[in-house]
Design a protein around this nucleic acid. Structure first.
Length: 268
RNA sequence: CAAUCAUUG
């Protein structure tokens, strides 16, 4: 069973859903990990709907989900923006011993955030007995994505007060909140904070800073930050080119495009 | 450890 499950996983990860499914169907005995793996495979291939379907089928065959299964399926609900399904599964989770698991609650927060159910996200967040940096980042991101920049920023402050250490992803979410709220002062504050702590900026954080300055109408600061970034990825170029275009610098955008191609950064 | 959580264009 372990070996066959590994095969299902390997095909799934390689995007070969057909083979993954074929192997899964041929297996005579399956355990919960096998089912969970197959559900993930559907999701990897962008077939979230099929993944939800397989989950239902699993329940009908009286196979009990474990914590990883729940995390997996809730994450799929997030990607599918499947609010109804997500809520239903959450109710089920509340009847299990997993209801307070940190990673599971984290995925629920993100699912509710994605499904425009901020209140449910917050409720889940508040109900947690223990939180980690992912919980905080997830809740901050949920607020940021719903233009609740102020709520995001105050959560960030609260997080720092109880001495949870922010990581790169947290900062990306916070900067996103500043960008959405066009809250320049807070964004600058974060920028300063970052420079005092780290020498080299993570690409993701760098991109978010450029984006934040641009959204706050500080094209020059965006540009300055862009030129100072050691590491650039396709998102970096995309942000700065978009910024140029918005500021009537179409020619500059084209020039950047050339530069990017020249550096061997592929298009996507 | 055979499967699993938050993030910018």
């Amino acid at each position: 069973v372990v070996t066959a499950t590994n095969v299902v996983n390997m095909y799934g990860k390689c995007g070969s859903l057909r083979n993954s499914q074929r192997c899964f169907d041929k297996m005579l005995s399956k355990n919960i990990i096998t089912w969970t793996t197959m559900i993930s495979s559907y999701s990897e291939s962008g077939m979230g709907y099929m993944a939800l379907h397989l989950f239902e089928q699993m329940l009908q065959e009286c196979v009990l989900p474990n914590m990883v299964t729940f995390i997996t399926i809730i994450t799929i609900c997030t990607n599918q923006v499947a609010k109804i399904e997500g809520k239903r599964i959450h109710v089920y989770i509340l009847c299990t011993e997993y209801k307070l698991d940190i990673a599971l609650c984290n995925s629920l927060i993100s699912m509710y955030g994605q499904c425009d159910a901020l209140a449910h996200a917050r409720q889940t967040f508040d109900g947690m007995l223990a939180k980690n940096v992912v919980s905080w980042s997830g809740m901050i991101a949920a607020y940021a994505q719903h233009s609740q920049g102020m709520a995001a920023l105050s959560l960030f402050q609260e997080m720092q007060l109880i001495e949870v250490t922010a990581n790169d992803i947290t900062l990306v979410s916070v900067l996103d909140a500043c960008a959405n709220q066009t809250c320049l002062s807070a964004g600058e504050c974060v920028h300063t904070l970052i420079f005092s702590d780290t020498l080299e900026l993570n690409v993701l954080v760098g991109n978010s800073i450029v984006n934040m300055y641009n959204k706050c109408g500080k094209f020059l600061d965006a540009w300055k930050t862009f030129t100072r970034l050691k590491e650039k990825d396709t998102a970096t170029w995309s942000v700065i080119m978009g910024a140029c275009a918005e500021h009537g610098q179409g020619m500059e955008a084209v020039r950047l495009m050339d530069q990017m191609m020249h550096k061997g950064v592929g298009l996507d």
